[in-house]
Design a protein around this nucleic acid. Structure first.
Length: 908
RNA sequence: GGGCGAUUAGCUCAGUUGGUUCAGAGCACCUCGUUUACACCGAGGGGGUCGGGAGUUCGAAUCUCUCAUCGCCCACCA
């Protein structure tokens, strides 16, 4: 037909998604079938779909759809994460733009705004996933801060506290003196700035006027010093260890200690230790049991512990103390210096390291459990090498306790109530009150006397429960019993520590008490059997995609351009498990060219069109009910037999690839199978000649094959397959591709597949000769094949000869015992073929070609000979390998013989 | 500084337990072709010393060591 009959995804994709939703195909409830469950890595509730999500969710959708087609009870649970830091920052910003300050309106009012914001923007990303074709059970959509999930978080907190795994202690945190809040590391931006290193002499206590010089950027903190540290290897200072020096201006004595942390080369080689105001100093202080003296207020002014400059801001104090030191004679030098300064992402004020009371979860036991689960293959990582990274983080040398408190409001508030010095941790305020009354023996205490902790728990402290809480596992275990453990988790390796490891830990911690020992012994405690780590999607400079860089292509506009199927194809075909993929914006602004990555999406769209055209072809055939002529019957029967076997071969290959999550590979295999084997070969073989009909049996068989292909491809490209599925046959209610039956791989005849490959090689070579000699492609040619045991064996297989005749457009194919005069010849496997022509043969060109082939064959034989004449090879290699080599040698020698004969004949 | 990974065709990448002349795919490129489903196409074709070096082995893109370049993660410079 005409070129306007092209595949157009836009309208089709919307229609089928609606259709699937209407038929509730994505829904899952426990039944007698085998479950196949996946929980989505919940995207940030305020997030917008980006390429990482697309890749991630495409993979999950493929696995879920395949399971569904295989008759399993497929359950993909969607949802969003409240993402406390990111979301709170957004809401704060939104309020600030309206002139509202978070601190002014208070917790309750702020949360009201936040929930309004969430309700307004929270669903966007999930709707975008629908465009991609994600077949989530939307009725199960969860949110990490909804009531039920929050309740579970509190329950777990209390449980761990009772188990003695949660504790509270001082910790160095990033303090924003302007916002007066603790910042997470992610919220601190480090940039190089100009600074000054102040060299200060601390005099020995017993020998004034003599001392040790240190260098610091923060002279205003010397009043908080509790030691001077030198490297015990440092020849200059090692003898000083143990002596005492006086802090200038305030004359407090502090010891000189030895610690290998000190870099001999840097500064003066001596380091002042200020445990209250520097994270490293704090660690050193802990090692040496040093006192912690905090001289700063929350607003970064100096407090009375500083003894001098009290009430001054830290920067003002810095200026003034230099003056004082100069006057006292302790200032040795001022050195200009460039260094990285951390500033608050939100207020831009210089971040102050500050000791604050934080809640911690002891990780030692958890880490051990987490390591063991993966080591014992209860959880399998794909790709395997991710284990290294996992181990590196969880091993006992590196594991650190998890700080689970955050100084935010958007999140689950820590269930701890304070009454004086006492802390009461309980699921409700009433329970805490009861505890408090008990403890204080004061029955008149009321809720007003208790003060709840102001902080919330880290977001990951709710998402680590996700595989349990999405099934309401802490309340009722009916669903958990059926769906847990989930089959696979698909996520990026960047959150391996934050999320994956912790989910494994949580699974081991609670699944047994929730599900019972018996069930756990049968199914295991792990929250998922497999983890598929996707690569990070990066731009062409290998930077992570991020909104702030503006380097993420608009996912939805890509779908608009190439269709969801096209984009799914493009994403996947460039993404082997675990490897980062480079996926840039569709157009390169500099070169003004369409980028390679978009080409992959385009290729996906073209693939859709190819299948669409194949559909057109089949639908265009007229059908005849009478039997066919013998030749055609033979050809079609063989084509069908071949394709059936080929299909089984591909099915078993696909099975392997799915087993090892080589999805990219699977798609490419399928692409080649459909394009090359089905369209270019099978259809070309059975295609009726112009204006001639096809027999009903072959047509039915062809439609049947196509149907199977659609089912197999459906997980990867759901929309186009569903559309063609319905165009291919009349379908009744509920007869949809999405719920069709995935074909099972059966045994296949390797001999047959190999033989067909051989005859296709003959066809290619005839076509090549036509092209090179400008012979019309429709002019029937007479082809002769050299008679040999091999060629006789090949053509003994019925139908092959007829297929060659059809595909290569031959008038005849016959055996010959000798060379055919006036012919063009070629070699296929070990046999010579001759095409009879009446044009005169270009002897020169023919000789050149033959000599080329001869040189190749001789090289081949030489290399094999070399191998076989190596005694060590013959003695050490497995016999099968040696036999193969011998067969290769024989083949090669045979070829040479034929070629030499031909060359000689031409020369005479 | 600690850890992980990469380097294969002009570009983006496959290459699963070492074994066929095994060096592969897509895009790009070249030639030919619009009467027959498809120019979003068909039939053909060219193109790589597998980053360098050494080693193990009968045999290395594949295993070991080393050097070079690049990338990422974690920790950090008083």
């Amino acid at each position: 037909m005409s070129s306007n009959n092209r595949y157009n995804p836009t309208e089709i994709e919307a229609r089928w998604y609606e259709h699937w939703m209407k038929h509730n195909y994505f829904d899952s409830t426990p039944d007698e079938r085998e479950p196949y469950s996946i929980v989505i890595p919940p995207p940030n509730v305020t997030g917008v779909l980006h390429m990482g999500h697309m890749l991630n969710n495409t993979i999950q959708d493929i696995l879920i759809r395949k399971a569904r087609l295989e008759g399993k009870n497929a359950c993909w649970v969607p949802g969003t994460d409240h993402a406390s830091i990111a979301t709170e920052a957004k809401v704060v910003k939104m309020l600030r733009e309206k002139g509202i300050k978070k601190g002014d309106i208070g917790r309750e009012a702020f949360l009201k705004h936040a929930f309004e914001w969430k309700d307004k923007y929270g669903g966007i990303i999930l709707d975008q996933l629908k465009r991609l074709g994600a077949s989530c059970d939307w009725k199960r959509t969860r949110f990490t801060m909804e009531d039920k999930l929050s309740k579970a978080v509190i329950k777990v907190f209390v449980d761990l506290y009772k188990k003695g795994k949660i504790y509270r202690r001082l910790r160095m945190t990033n303090w924003d003196p302007e916002a007066q809040t603790v910042l997470s590391n992610e919220e601190v931006i480090y940039k190089e700035e100009n600074a000054q290193l102040v060299h200060i002499r601390y005099d020995f206590e017993d020998s004034p006027g003599e001392g040790i010089v240190i260098a610091t950027q923060r002279p205003e903190t010397i009043m908080a010093d509790t030691a001077i540290a030198v490297n015990p290897e440092d020849e200059r200072f090692k003898d000083l260890i143990g002596r005492k020096v006086l802090i200038p201006l305030i004359n407090r004595a502090i010891p000189i200690i030895g610690d290998t942390y000190v870099d001999i080369e840097f500064g003066t080689g001596a380091l002042k230790i200020t445990p209250a105001h520097d994270p490293n100093d704090n660690e050193i202080g802990e090692r040496h049991n040093l006192e912690v003296i905090d001289i700063l207020n929350a607003d970064a002014t100096l407090n009375e512990k500083a003894r001098i400059l009290v009430g001054q801001d830290r920067f003002e104090a810095r200026k003034n103390i230099k003056k004082l030191l100069k006057e006292s004679g302790n200032l040795v030098e001022l050195e200009d210096y460039r260094t990285k300064i951390g500033r608050s992402e939100r207020t831009n004020s210089v971040v102050e390291p500050r000791l604050t009371l934080q809640w911690f979860l002891s990780m030692k036991d958890f880490a051990e459990t987490g390591l063991k689960a993966v080591k014992d293959k209860k959880v399998t990582f794909y790709p395997e090498h991710m284990w290294n990274m996992y181990y590196n983080w969880l091993n006992e040398d590196n594991i650190k306790d998890w700080c689970i408190s955050r100084q935010l409001w958007w999140g689950q508030r820590i269930p701890a109530w304070y009454y004086g010095e006492h802390i009461f941790v309980a699921e409700t305020a009433e329970e805490a009150l009861a505890q408090a009354r008990d403890k204080s023996a004061n029955p008149d205490l009321s809720l007003h006397d208790l003060k709840q902790d102001e902080d919330v728990v880290d977001t990951w402290f709710s998402s680590w429960l996700w595989p349990i809480t999405v099934f309401d596992g802490f309340e009722t275990q009916d669903e958990l019993k059926y769906y847990y453990p989930t089959n696979v988790l698909v996520t990026g390796w960047d959150i391996m520590f934050f999320w994956v490891a912790r989910m494994i830990m949580a699974g081991y911690e609670w699944s047994e008490e929730l599900l019972g020992t018996e069930l756990i012994q049968a199914k295991g405690r792990q929250p998922f059997h497999d983890v598929y780590f996707t690569g990070m999607v990066r731009d062409n400079r290998r930077r992570k995609m991020s909104k702030s860089l503006g380097n993420s292509p608009d996912a939805l506009s890509l779908i608009d351009a190439y269709g969801a199927d096209g984009v799914r194809f493009g994403m996947l075909s460039s993404a082997a498990a675990g490897n980062d993929i480079i996926f840039d914006a569709p157009f390169d602004a500099e070169t003004k060219q369409v980028r390679n990555e978009s080409k992959l999406c385009e290729q996906g769209l073209k693939f859709c069109n190819k299948m669409w055209q194949a559909l057109n072809a089949i639908k265009g055939w007229e059908v005849m009910d009478e039997p066919l002529n013998e030749d055609t019957a033979l050809i079609n029967a063989k084509a069908i037999e071949w394709f059936e076997n080929k299909l089984n071969e591909v099915l078993s290959q696909l099975e392997d690839k799915f087993q090892s999550y080589r999805l990219s590979d699977a798609l490419i295999t399928l692409y080649n199978f459909i394009w090359n084997d089905f369209c270019s070969t099978y259809i070309e073989i059975v295609k009726p000649p112009y204006k001639k009909p096809i027999d009903r049996a072959t047509l039915e068989q062809t439609i049947d094959f196509y149907e199977k292909l659609l089912t197999i491809l459906h997980p990867f490209m759901p929309f186009v397959t569903e559309e063609i599925w319905h165009q291919l046959r009349e379908r009744g209610e509920g007869e949809d591709c999405i719920v069709s039956t995935y074909p099972k791989a059966a045994a296949f005849d390797r001999e047959l597949l190999k033989n067909v490959e051989k005859i296709l090689d003959v066809v290619t070579k005839v076509r090549d000769i036509r092209a090179k000699n400008k012979i019309d492609k429709f002019e029937p040619l007479a082809l002769f094949v050299e008679e040999s045991d091999r060629s006789k064996a090949l053509y003994a297989m019925e139908g092959l000869e007829a297929i060659i005749r059809k595909l290569a457009v031959l008038s005849s194919l016959e055996f010959t015992e000798e060379e055919v005069a006036n012919s063009l010849s070629f070699l296929s496997t070990t046999e010579n073929y001759y095409i009879e022509v009446d044009v005169s043969v270009d002897v020169e060109a023919e000789l050149e070609r033959l000599e080329g082939e001869l040189a190749y064959a001789e090289g081949f034989v030489a290399s094999v000979n070399k191998k076989l004449s190596n005694e060590r090879f013959v003695n050490n290699a497995p016999t099968a390998v040696v036999e193969k080599e011998k067969a290769k040698l024989a083949d090669g020698q045979e070829k040479i013989k034929i070629l030499v004969e031909q060359i000689n004949k031409l020369k005479n």
